[in-house]
Amino acid sequence: MNKDQFLNTGLLEQYALGLTDENENLEVEKYLNAFPELKKEVDEIRNAVEQYAIQQAIPPHPRVKANIMAGIDELQGSKPSGGRAGSSNNWMKALLILGFAGIFGLLFLYTQKNAQNQDLKREFAELQIACDQQNERIQANQLEFLFMKHRYTQKVILASSNPSSHTKAVAFWNPNEKKGLVSLGSLPELPEDQQYQIWADVDHVMISVGLLENDYDGLQDIAYLAEAESLNITIEPLGGSTAPTVEKLVVSGLL
């Protein structure tokens, strides 16, 4: 019998409705195993007729339930698997469950505490790093401050050659310490593919003394050249140039 022939027997519906005998059950189950989609159909039929039956429910008189419960109570004494025999067993089960629950509870608390501990350690390490960084920054600031206050430190204002422009940068230059610092001051922000570069004029030759970071407000180190006569900042492609782009000179100042 193929699938369609089988479906035509009407056995599948009888089976889904629970109206087949043992032999018929075996027959139907053979087809269910061969065609899993029929299994789904059986489940759907069962669900649908169940809903259908529930929909047509009529509530029985409450005495019926009371009678049933009383009937079961009466029979329970004679039923070996029910009631008292199981009760000590149930106690044991309850105790076991409680025991396991306790162990799992402790285990849970332990892992939680452990995780908390790890978190605290991580947080502490992070704070320590932050603290070290702050210290370094303070030290650097102190050094900068001392450097600026140094009696040989010369403050150089770098200004635009265009008198209408108020753009300015500032440099600190110290021949004694052989050290130079520069701040971008009010120089405009540059697009990402460009960068300020600072040049020292030595005997009319421009020598690069540093590439400046775009968005850094603080003081940046530049190279110190004893023979430098002036400092000049130009706009160059990101990464800097070997020779200054003179037409992109922004500010300059004499030393």
Binding site: E50, I54, Q56, A57, I58, I68, M69, S81, G82
Partner: peptide, 23 residues
């Protein structure tokens, strides 16, 4: 397990439907 509580639940759930059919 012959749990009486289950009969209670099953009754609440299905007694109406079964009664409707029995009648």
């Amino acid at each position: 397990n012959g749990d009486k509580k289950i009969i209670d639940l099953l009754y609440d759930q299905y007694a109406g439907a079964l009664y409707g059919i029995i009648i």
